[in-house]
């Protein structure tokens, strides 16, 4: 089932990417070619095979919950495009 322009628009929205209408059809074609290639995975019999997330078999790696060195606020703010002394500045997100 080929990927439609409507699907591309939906995925772009999920991915938080502005995608001009002019690029929709080319993007659909390219994604379709790659997804078509990936479809070959359906040929593999994976009955009863556990999905693997970490090749070393690690599950949860815990450490002591103790305060340690952290990035100073000023250093974090210095690399932000818009900031005050201790906060990132964005348009209002809550109406009241």
């Amino acid at each position: 089932m080929p990927i439609t322009e409507q699907q591309v628009r939906h995925v772009a929205k999920l991915a938080l990417l502005d995608l001009p209408d002019a690029e929709l059809s080319a993007t659909a074609r390219q994604l379709d070619a790659i997804v078509g290639y990936v479809e070959q995975l359906s040929q593999v019999d994976t009955t009863g095979v556990e999905p693997i997330a970490n090749v070393a078999g690690l599950v949860n790696v815990l450490r002591a919950d103790e305060p340690g060195a952290m990035l100073p606020t000023a250093a974090a703010m210095a690399i932000a495009p818009k900031h005050s002394a201790d906060a990132y500045l964005v348009p209002k997100v809550v109406e009241r």
Partner: peptide, 22 residues
Amino acid sequence: MLGTYVLSAGYYDAYYKKAQQV
């Protein structure tokens, strides 16, 4: 885009989980 597609609702099992099994 591709990564978002394979992780999106309705496609996760067919692509991401399948890939983790392979």
